[in-house]
Amino acid sequence: MKILICLSNVPDTTTKIKFTGDNTQFDAAGVQWIINPWDELALTRALEIKETSGTTIEKVTVLTVGKADTEPTLRKALAIGADDAVRIDAEPKDAYQVAAQITGFVKEQPYDIILCGIESSDYNGSTVGGMLAEFLDSPSVSSVSGLFLENGQIRLNREIDGGQEVLETMIPFVAIVQKGIAKEPRIPSMRGIMMARSKPLTVKPAVAADELTGFTAFELPPPHAKCKMIDAENVGELVKVFRNELKII
């Protein structure tokens, strides 16, 4: 079996978010780029499965849609343990376009298990994985917090409101994974970093794909205001905040 992990290259989660061009573009100056945290957990789980299932998993490939400046992210994934990497040479602009690019590649080189993170920490789309599954006409399981391969059978745990489901699925399939899929991302070893030098990183030309959406403007939320005081006799006000603003009830 072969596993493909779709990686997004995102700004480090501690990045101070700024925009340029009259608030139409994310300001990437001085930004440190990382593997999207959910995608990194997906990679971790894929490697765990590969290591514990004998020879069942032939290879673990990582893929990103992006220009050459995303290659350090792919090489980090190789250092962590992926067998090879693919970069589709297109500027990612819209989930539909990105999913179409990945589809082009997978139709050419099929994979049995495709893993995508449930969202990317930049534009918070939660979209590419599902779109890819539909383009490929594959089954998909989303919000996956557990993925197991036992005697060639796939079992998945899926988070639902207030609980969890256990599912089985046919191969090939797309799993859209979230926290819990692996404990924590791996730290690359010196050997891994050294071996990453000689692992293949293939650049594929972009295929024709439509962009159906685009961000036209951004704004920053208003600055942190002074603590708003609520009267102790009027806790209902706070409950309104819980509901309307914080959305926790």
């Binding site: 730290i187 070893s189 010196m190 050997r191 970093i193």
Partner: peptide, 19 residues
Amino acid sequence: AELGFFGMMIDPKYGGGGM
């Protein structure tokens, strides 16, 4: 040691990282 920090500068032919 498992991450290779104990042998990071040793030649890979002796099991190091060659950094």
